[in-house]
């Protein structure tokens, strides 16, 4: 019966170690933020709770020791631990409260809105430039001149200037970025840049220049064509 409590603890520890140390070390991966680790740990805990309460036997084996410990019923030498928990628990709550309200030099976590809705005048615009090899080639040329220092020659967001930005420039080769958007959206973002982000686009962290002051619209449309072609992606369309 002891196994019924040991197994869940092992599962929780294994999942934590997996998320904290294994996933970040997979090639191409990165450390997971605390919010994601907590989310997955809560799911695991819920699953354990569900599985061990499916039948009476497993429920008793799982919950029984905890109930006996909490009520102090026949736990012998564990009494000291029980009192320790009684003291430790309020201290943990106090520490959590303190650490969440104490002054810190760390900015709080952000729920960034990456894709705010474009203004009405941009929604539904179509690229007026004919999609010819020449136009795409020209677009790539403009891209190399104006965009690649940040977004990278390989369209992967790893240009020589990218290291200076947090958040870093978008990776167009990632199928979850420009492939999800219509060309009109990119036109708006390139034209208006970070300063043109609407209220919805909090926390407005973008160093993207406002290219409308330097580039004519036709060049911007060609850059968009070059970007999609170079990153091997297709814009979202409805036809």
């Amino acid at each position: 019966m002891k196994g019924a409590l040991v197994t869940p603890v092992i599962v929780m520890v294994v999942v934590y170690l997996l998320l904290k140390f294994v996933v970040p070390n997979i090639p191409g991966s990165a450390p997971l933020p605390f919010s994601v680790i907590i989310l997955y740990m809560m799911l695991t805990l819920s699953g354990i709770g569900m599985f061990y309460t499916l039948s009476k036997d497993s429920k008793d084996a799982f919950w029984g020791p905890m109930e006996r410990f909490l009520t102090g019923e026949n736990i012998g030498g564990m009494q000291a631990l029980r009192w320790g928990l009684l003291i430790l628990f309020p201290l943990l709550v106090g520490w959590q409260t303190y650490s969440s309200t104490a002054v810190s030099d760390q900015p709080p976590g952000e729920n960034r809105t990456i894709h705010p809705a474009p203004p009405g005048e941009y929604a539904g615009l179509s690229n007026p430039v004919a999609k010819t090899p020449d136009a795409i080639q020209q677009g790539k040329g403009f891209y190399a001149a104006y965009c690649s220092p940040c977004h990278g020659g390989n369209f992967d967001g790893k240009g020589p200037a990218a290291r200076g930005f947090n958040p870093p420039p978008a990776n167009f080769a990632d199928p979850t970025t420009i492939a999800m958007l219509q060309e009109s959206y990119l036109f708006w973002r390139i034209k208006k840049g970070g300063v043109g982000l609407p209220i919805e686009g909090m926390p407005w962290k973008s160093a993207m220049p406002r290219w409308e002051v330097e580039l004519p619209d036709e060049w911007i449309w060609k850059i968009i064509m070059g970007e999609y072609d170079g990153a091997h992606q297709s814009p979202r369309t409805w036809e």
Binding site: P31, P33, R112
Partner: peptide, 29 residues
């Protein structure tokens, strides 16, 4: 339940290389 843009502190975002996790970002779409 995994969002495309993860809730992360500035330090965490820096380590991830943005608010999209390079591996879990694909779960967000």
């Amino acid at each position: 339940m995994t969002p495309h843009s993860l809730v992360a502190s500035m330090e965490e975002a820096r380590k991830m290389g943005g608010s999209h996790h390079p591996l879990l970002g694909v779960f967000g779409v």
